[in-house]
Amino acid sequence: MSEVFDLIVDHPFFAGMTRDQIKVVSETGTVVSYHEGQTIFTEGTDAVGPLLILSGDVALEMQTPGHGPQVILTLHSGDFLGWSWLYPPYRWTYDAHVHSNAEAIRFDGPGLKEASEVDPALGYELMKRFTEMLVNRMQSIRIQLLDVYSTPR
């Protein structure tokens, strides 16, 4: 099996998937490294596929006129980065900057989608997992929006 397979086979995201399915996914992945301060992608550019962060810290930022970049979320070892590759118009919605040297697996989004078309069972397994991740992120952002630590007056 490949290096990428070995890196993802025990990852919680893939728990419950067959080894054959994980092998197909791993064949679309490449191990990449980023140094502190590097930009992984910027808002509006082509969203080519998700990244699974193996180590290091990545900040999702939004550029706001007059205020510069605002960090809205940080992601860390074990987190998936990016879902804009799943849905049209396939463009990143935020900037992703490396806060500390990071290693990740960059998956080929079109390759994952093609494999899912060929094997709908694989596609369903992947969609379940990415949807759960989306729901969890949305829940978190809703709690942030509630501003629960503000002073109740």
Partner: peptide, 23 residues
Amino acid sequence: ITVDHGDRVWRGPVGVVTSLISR
């Protein structure tokens, strides 16, 4: 430690405290 809203100098986690549990 995580914060709901970072600033220009904060280099730590941004997000809800539950996101720290898995770490």
